[in-house]
Amino acid sequence: MSAQNQTEINKLGRVSRKSNFVMNLILLVYASFCIVPLFMSLAVSFTDEKMLTIHGYSFWPRNFTTYAYQFIFSMANQVVNAYVVSMIVTVAGTILSVLVMALYAFPISRKDFKYKNFFTFYMIFTMLFSGGMVSTYLIGVNLLHLKDNLWGLIFPYLMNAFWVIILRTFYRSNIPDSLIESAKIDGAGEFRIFFQMIFPLALPGIAAVALLAMLQYWNDWFLAALYINNPQLMPLPYLLYQIQVSMQFLLQNSSNIGSQAGDILSRMPSESARMAMVVIAVGPIALTFPFFQKYFTKGLTVGAIKG
C-alpha cells in the first residue's frame, strides 16, 4: 500500500474540517443553553431590586448589590433552617440508603445463595407494580407516622430497586467468586467479607449510587410536599417552592423582626432574594459536580448497558 493511499484512508477516519466546525458550533450552542440560565439567576441575585422592576431579568447585574444575600441571612432564619434540614436529610439519607442497598445487593449477587432469585424478584416487583400515590400517602401518614417528621423525608427513598441492580451487577463483574470462597475457607464471616473485601473493591459503583442518592435527597421537594407542614422541618427546595407563592412566607417564622415587619416587607428584595435562594440551593451541586461526574457516568453506563 503506498504512502499516499494510507493518508487517504486515514482521512476517512474522521469527519471533514467543515463538519467538525459545524458540530462544534451546535454543541457549543446547546452547552451554553444549559449553563447560561444559571448565570442569569446568579446575575439577578446581585441586581438591585428597583432595576429589576424596570429592566426585568438580564444576564448582567445592573447596580451590583449583595443586599439580597444580606437580607436572606439576617432576616430570614427560615432559610438557614431549611439549609440545615436539607443537609441533615441528605447526609443521613445518603449514608443509610447506601448501606441498606449495598447490603441488599450482596446476597442477591451471590450465585451460591439459594434464595437469590426470590429476593431479586421481591425487589424487582416493586418496579413493576406500585400501590400508587394515594395509598402510599395514606399509609405513610397513618401507619408509618411520616407526617411532620424528618424520617418522612428519608425513609421512602431508602431502597431504589434500579440502583440495587446497578450494585449487584457491579459486585458480579468486579469480584470473582473464588475470592469470596477463599476468604470463607480462611474463616471470614459474611459481614467481614462484605465490609473488608466487597465494599472497598466495589467502591466506584457504590460511590456512583451514593452520589445519585445524595442528589435525590438534596433536590427533593415531593416528599416534603406530601408530609411536611411544619415550617421548621422544610428542606430547601420545598421552601423555595413555598416562596414562589409568597415571599412573606420567609418572615412568618422570623424571630428578629417584631414591630418593624411592615417596614421590612416594603423594602424586601423579593425578586433578587428568590434568585439568591436558587443560587444557594444550586451552589453546592454546581461547584462539586465536575469532580463527581466520572462516578455518575460510571453508574449510569453500568446500569444501562449491563443492568
Partner: peptide, 23 residues
C-alpha cells in the same frame, strides 16, 4: 448473615411498597 443483610432492605420494601399495594 446473608439473611441479616437482606433484612433492612426487605423491611423497607415491605413497609414502603408492599403495604401500599394492599392499600
Amino acid at each position: 448473615a446473608l439473611f441479616l443483610m437482606l433484612l433492612p432492605g426487605a423491611l423497607v420494601l415491605f413497609l414502603n411498597n408492599y403495604l401500599p399495594m394492599f392499600g
